Amino acid sequence: MTSDEAPRTDAEIVAAEWSVVLSYGTDRVDPAVPRAAYSHPSLRVLFPMISHGVLYLSRCTKWPWTFDVGTAYPLVEGGYRVRRESDKTLLGEVETVEDAYELIASNLPDGCGPAVDGTPDDL
């Protein structure tokens, strides 16, 4: 960014990262995973990250990210285990990626809104 460019808004930062994550191939993540999450308006405003083939969603854009939004972990036998890491709550086990992100969307923390450009201290 040059000095005469306006800084990006929180929403623009999140949208840009979603664009990157949605473009990943199968070497990074099953493309169905970010597509399923992105289909939920309440999830697409959160900051997406991929690690070890798993999509994580945060309420902030900088480390340390929040871990109070559920995460869908693929099971070897098929389906997904959905956990919230902040309090180690098992939200459930479901058969499909769509069901996993429906479960995550329905279990967002109270007051969960669009991600902010910052750390958890900025929430």
Rank of each mutant, 00 (worst) to 15 (best):
R44V: 09
P34G: 06
E102S: 14
R59L: 04
I13Y: 08
E85W: 09
S23V: 06
S58L: 04
V82S: 02
A105C: 09
V76C: 00
V54G: 02
A72G: 06
T96L: 10
A16N: 13
S42G: 05
P64F: 09
V29E: 06
A37P: 07
R35E: 12
V82A: 10
P34A: 06
A32D: 14
A6G: 06
L91Y: 06
P64M: 12
E102D: 14
T66M: 03
T9I: 08
T61S: 10
V20W: 10
G79W: 04
E85Q: 14
A37F: 08
Y24L: 14
P7A: 15
S23I: 04
R84D: 04
E98M: 04
M49N: 01
W63E: 13
T9W: 08
I50E: 03
E95T: 14
P41L: 06
D87M: 08
L75A: 05
A15S: 12
V69W: 02
E77K: 12
A11S: 14
V54N: 06
V94H: 09
V76P: 05
V33L: 01
L91R: 10
D4E: 15
V21Q: 01
T61N: 00
L46A: 03
P64S: 12
E85R: 10
M1C: 10
V33A: 03
Y56S: 08
K62V: 00
Y56K: 02
T89W: 06
I50W: 00
A16Q: 13
L46E: 05
Y38H: 13
W18D: 11
I104C: 07
A72P: 02
R83A: 08
V21Y: 02
I50R: 00
R59C: 07
M1T: 11
I104F: 04
H40F: 12
P48H: 05
A15C: 05
K88S: 14
P31G: 08
R81F: 00
P74V: 08
V69I: 15
L22K: 15
T2E: 14
P31M: 07
A16E: 15
Y24F: 15
A36S: 13
F47C: 01
E93T: 14
E77D: 13
P48V: 08
P64T: 12
V97Q: 04
V45K: 02
A6W: 04
L75V: 07
V21R: 02
T61R: 00
G92D: 07
V20Q: 11
T2G: 15
L90V: 15
V94S: 11
R44G: 08
P41W: 03
M1V: 07
R83W: 12
E85T: 13
V97D: 00
W63T: 09
L46S: 06
S51W: 02
Y38I: 00
V82I: 11
R35K: 13
M49Y: 00
A6N: 12
F47Y: 15
F47R: 00
E93K: 12
L46M: 09
G92I: 10
V54E: 03
D30W: 10
W63P: 01
L43V: 02
T2F: 11
S51A: 10
L90Y: 01
P48L: 04
S106A: 14
P64D: 13
I104A: 03
A105G: 05
E12C: 11
E12W: 12
V33D: 05
M1L: 07
A72N: 03
D30V: 09
L43R: 03
W65Y: 15
Y101S: 03
A32K: 14
P74D: 02
P74A: 10
Y56W: 09
S58K: 04
S19L: 10
